[in-house]
Amino acid sequence: MNEILDKIKQKYNAEDVTIQRERLAFVTVSKNLAIDAVTWLRDYEGFSHFVMMSCVDWMEDGKFQLLYLLHNPETKIDLGVKTYIDRENSVMESAHHLWKQVWTYQRELREAFGIDFPGSPRIEENFVLEGWEDIPHMRREFNTKEYSENTYFPRPGRETYDPATYMQQKLYPNQPVTAKRKDNDK
């Protein structure tokens, strides 16, 4: 484990190394070196299995964090390669030539976050949604509740109660309300 982490630190300037548990670790490399690092891990270090690819939206920092999770079937080590890309100009080098399943992940990320992967096959096609015209729905500035209210016909009369408060009012109407209303729903 430490061996491979040392190597990737030296070779690709990996920062922010997190050892999650015995056989799972994450490293962050720069955007330009990320695909190089993944290729090197696949071809020279035995990380031949591509587990998944995902994205986290750091809206406040103006960044998307991409994660390539790889697995080495011999040493049974999982290694996640993270990289940050710009949120405004969200273009990332495509990794479709390394594994075929990356095509699908990249299509999904393109639809959900609007990240472009130039050269990736079938990237223009719809993934799950058909004819989506709004901003990509997994970006955090997209307000799903507002969109739903504006698009679909909400049925009037829908109210939400805090269960604790509501039960106390129903069962002991004469006593003052002591149950604290949670702040997550207004």
């Binding site: 997209f142 799903t144 049925r155």
Partner: peptide, 13 residues
């Protein structure tokens, strides 16, 4: 809409 009343992809009524 049930529990998906605020979803961007499911209808409400």
């Amino acid at each position: 809409g049930g529990m998906y009343y605020d979803s961007y992809s499911t209808i409400n009524r």
